[in-house]
Each structure stands twice: as structure tokens, then as C-alpha cells.
Design a protein around this nucleic acid. Structure first.
Length: 465
RNA sequence: CGGAGUGUAGCUCAGCCUGGUAGAGCACUGGUUUUGGGAACCAGGGGUCCAAAGUUCGAAUCUUUGUACUCCGACCA
């Protein structure tokens, strides 16, 4: 795969996404360990490789998707006023002894010792560490509210990892932590994250429904899970049908203003997971024709937990009257390494993945149907240059192989648009565009292809919804 | 952690019951012909048969003990 070829034969080596030189190990057979569709497709499309139970390498194609997902998460966190930083994966046990969670967390936490036999752990979450950072630097009520987040690897030694990266032991999580003077202000911080999450999922083409949730070991008294409906979801959920097509808060939403109307709208209808559901309440709140009972994947979880950590860890600020105030906190998690399979679960067919443009590893793939033909190849090369010049994130299938295999690969890895050019079309000066999702095909002059692809793709990038 | 199952080529799997030269398809390498929905032919490379111990003249195959992975349940971004 290009390793022994001289660089001379690749004039733009290191820049192009020519499939003949890319690293895309697609699998024809389904590896037997994969049970659910997203896991199978991620393995077949060469996105990930399992290295041990619950531990995955992200191969180039998968990593490109992961990066795009992270970018959307970051953009929406930033928009809502959260500030990004980065904390280490390894944490000192002492910090966790302060909050009392070192003993409470159990075997799910991976405990390790350094060469001096000091106790450390691979962080399953970061409340303690962020609280430590906060208390060190933030001393005045004037510095609040504050919301700090990072996207970092977590490790939870799950009893049974499964479903590929959907539930792995090492996983990437965006975790945000809000600090406020009082509960009222903390609830506003909670609302900002609530809205940011709605926007984040929508931009990835996901319909996620907020549901009242149990607070679990993180604790607290206000919490929502965001659930994507999918047949392969891990838990059963019950909700009002109208929640499925509620409008998403616009990009110019004023995060400094009062968001409670939006939150009230989204929480006014019944929605609960099987742990929280009260069947009598569900049936009285939702008329039979509006009841949706389905399976769901949890793609985010937000908590308000008051002073649970700030109090034992003494995270206080000085108030206007000179008195110490223990801050109110919340934490907010989204797992990018889980979002990727969730998107696949929600968007695929028998031939493979169907990526929404906003997270697709490539926005379009140019397929040279006859790579052995000089004329056809010259036409494809120049069309490829033109598509690149138009800012399309392109993959170029320039392999000298049969057409069937190329179509199958393009379908499998789910690139939203296929630009197909072969000797037959070239004769009449025409190129074909296949829409991956609808299967629709259109034929147009080669010279119009780049403009058409651009027009198709730009509105779907969802940078502005 | 309880229950079930599987480890043989990069992947999917056969061979094991009934011990006797380690196989197939796909993938890979070289060549020829091909090229609009996973092309054909010719030639070739590739294996600690999960590990250790045992039984045996002889173990992928039988026995024991480990170990890894998967599935079902209780827990979770």
C-alpha cells in the first residue's frame, strides 16, 4: 500500500486522500466478536480495531469521524460559554480520599501505583480534580459563574464491556463542570448545558430526547439523560411522540438570557427511561396514539449536585458581604467515542453506514471506474483537483480495481456522495453523482460536478443550524 | 461476579467425535487477460493449531489446569 512506491510517483504525497495510498483496511467478512450493527460496521469499515476487551485503536477513517464529532462538541460547549482546558488521565488517590470516593467508587476504578508505591488511579471522571483547580485559583464571587470542560480519555473497568466503542472501558468523554454561587444560578448553568446538548446532537443528525434520570454515584437531585432511539439501545424508554420533532434552539440563542422557556418546553412532555418510568403516570400523561415505547442509547448525562464535592473539598469563594460561600456545582458528560456508534445505529442500511455530512469522514468520494485508462484517469485527476479546490473533504478511489468493489467500499464506509466517472460517461462528457442516503443518481456535465457537489454539501454541514 | 460458548493463516471457518504429513474461501505477492455493482486464470508466500502439564511410539485431536475473547444476567458517558 504505497510503502515501496517512490515518492516521485505521488506529486502531492502527504496531502491527497487517494485511496491507493490511504490506510483503509476494510473487511469483507464480519468479525465474529461483533454482535450489534454499529460494531460490525465499524470493524468492517476499518474504523477501529479491538486491542483487548473494551480497548480500541481508532484507525484513520474512524479517527476522522471522531475528530469531527469532537469539534462539534467543542463548538457547542464554547458557544454556551464553557471554557476548555485539559486535565491528566492519571490522578492522585489523595484527591479522591478528600471527597470520600476513593473507597466508594469500587472496582470500576482502575487503581495503580507508581514506582514509589504511591496510590494513583486512571480517572473515571474528574469532579475532584476540577474542584481542586477551582479552589486553588477562584476566590471571589465576582469570578462566577464558571464552567470548565475538557475532552479526555476516561477508564472505567466495566464488568462487561460490550457493543464495541459503545461501551468500552477506555472511552473519550467531554466532561464539563459548572460553579455557581447558589442553586438558582447553578440551575441556569444546567439549562445552558441542556441547550448546548440539544444543539450538539442535532448537528450530528441525531434526535436525542432528554429524560429525567437517576443520579447514580455522582449524586445530586437534578439530572437528565439524553437518549437516542435505536433498536439496539441498552434500555427501554417511554416518551411522548411530539418530543421527536421539537425544534432545536437556534445558534443565536442567548445563553446569558433566561433559557427556562426552552427547558420547560422540552421537559413538559413525559419522557423516562425504564429505571425511572412510572407506568401509571406515563399512561395518564400521554394519550395512547402519542406513546412511544422504544429502546434507547444514552448519549449524554447532565447533573446538578449542589455542594456534594465543594463542601468536603472546601471549594468556596468570598461573597459581597465578605462571608465564605460554598459553591454549587454541576457536571455534564458526553462521550464522543459512544456518539460515533450511536450515529451509525441511527443511520445505516444493508450496504453499510450512511454518514450525515457533518460527521462524515469524507464528504464525497470520487470513483475512477477505470484506473488503468490514461484518459479516464486524467479526467478524474483534474476533477479531483477541482473538488479539492472547492473545499470539499474528498476521498479519491484511484485504485486499479473492478468497479463493483469500489461501489461496495464507498457504500460500506458511508460517504454521503459518490462522484462516479468512467470511460462511458467521459465519452459524453458526463459524470454521475450518487446520493448515498436516498440511492438517487443524477447525471450532469463533468464541468458542473464540483459546483453541484458543493451546493449539495454546504447546507448539510450544519455549522449554522 | 453467576451462567453458557469459542480460541486452527490477516478475516470467516473446516478438521477434533473415531490420535498418524495442518486445510478451504476471501485477503496478500508475481504474471496474463480484464474493468459501470465485491472479475477470471496461472504461479507463489504465509501457521508457537491460545498456554502449560499429562496420557501415548505419536496429540490441533484425549485428560487436567490456566488464560483470552464473546454471548446472557446484575452495573454504566
Amino acid at each position: 500500500m504505497g510503502i515501496n512506491k517512490s515518492l516521485e510517483s505521488h506529486p502531492v504525497f502527504g496531502v491527497t486522500m487517494r485511496l491507493s495510498q490511504y490506510f483503509l483496511p476494510v473487511l469483507r467478512d464480519v468479525p465474529k466478536e461483533a454482535e450489534i450493527i454499529s460494531h460490525r460496521l465499524m470493524l468492517r469499515a476499518g474504523m477501529v480495531r479491538q486491542q483487548a476487551s473494551g480497548l480500541y485503536s481508532w484507525l484513520p477513517l474512524g479517527y476522522k469521524v471522531l475528530i469531527k464529532v469532537q469539534k462539534i462538541v467543542e463548538e457547542e460547549q464554547n458557544r454556551s460559554g464553557a471554557i476548555q482546558l485539559l486535565m491528566p488521565t492519571i490522578q492522585s488517590a489523595d484527591l479522591w480520599r478528600e471527597s470520600g470516593r476513593y473507597d466508594a467508587y469500587g472496582k470500576e476504578m482502575l487503581r495503580i501505583q507508581d514506582r514509589h508505591e504511591r496510590d494513583f488511579l486512571y480517572g473515571p471522571t474528574n469532579e475532584e480534580m476540577i474542584t481542586d483547580i477551582f479552589r486553588t485559583y477562584v476566590k471571589s464571587y465576582k469570578d462566577l459563574p464558571l464552567n470548565l470542560y475538557h475532552i479526555q480519555w476516561k477508564f472505567r473497568d466495566e464488568i462487561r464491556p460490550r457493543f464495541g466503542t459503545m461501551r468500552s472501558r477506555e472511552f473519550l468523554m467531554k466532561d464539563a463542570y459548572s460553579f455557581d454561587l447558589d442553586k438558582e444560578s447553578a440551575v441556569r448553568a444546567y439549562h445552558r448545558m441542556f441547550v448546548a446538548y440539544l444543539r450538539t446532537y442535532a448537528r450530528m443528525g441525531l434526535t436525542a430526547i432528554p429524560m429525567r434520570a437517576d443520579t447514580g454515584p455522582i449524586g445530586g437531585d437534578l439530572s437528565h439523560e439524553f437518549i437516542v432511539l435505536a433498536d439496539t439501545g441498552e434500555s427501554e424508554v417511554f416518551c411522548h411522540k411530539d418530543l421527536l420533532d421539537k425544534p432545536i434552539p437556534a445558534p443565536d440563542t442567548d445563553f446569558r438570557g433566561d433559557l427556562s422557556p426552552i427547558i420547560n418546553d422540552w421537559t413538559s412532555q413525559y419522557a423516562a427511561t425504564e429505571e425511572m418510568v412510572d407506568m401509571a403516570a406515563y399512561e395518564s400523561a400521554v394519550p395512547p396514539d402519542k406513546r412511544v415505547t422504544a429502546r434507547g442509547i444514552e448519549v449524554g448525562h447532565i447533573f446538578y449536585f449542589g455542594t456534594k464535592y465543594s463542601e468536603p473539598m472546601k471549594a468556596t469563594v468570598t461573597g459581597p458581604d465578605g462571608k465564605e460561600i460554598t459553591v454549587h456545582m454541576g457536571s455534564y458528560g458526553i462521550g464522543p467515542t459512544r456518539l460515533v456508534p450511536a450515529i451509525i445505529e441511527a443511520s445505516h442500511d444493508d450496504d453499510g453506514i450512511i454518514w450525515p455530512v457533518s460527521v462524515a469522514p469524507f464528504e464525497a468520494v470520487l470513483i475512477n471506474l477505470k484506473a488503468g485508462d490514461a484518459e479516464c484517469t486524467a479526467a478524474c485527476d483534474s476533477l479531483y483537483d477541482e473538488l479539492n479546490a472547492n473545499g470539499i473533504d474528498m476521498l479519491y478511489d484511484d485504485r486499479d480495481q473492478g468497479a463493483g468493489g469500489k461501489f461496495a467500499t464507498a457504500d460500506l464506509i458511508g460517504i454521503p456522495y459518490q462522484v462516479i466517472l468512467g470511460p462511458r460517461g467521459l465519452k459524453s462528457g458526463e459524470v454521475e453523482i450518487k446520493h448515498r442516503r436516498s440511492g438517487e443518481r443524477e447525471t450532469l456535465p463533468v464541468g458542473d460536478a464540483a459546483k453541484r457537489i458543493k451546493a449539495l454539501i454546504e447546507p448539510q454541514r450544519r455549522t449554522d443550524i
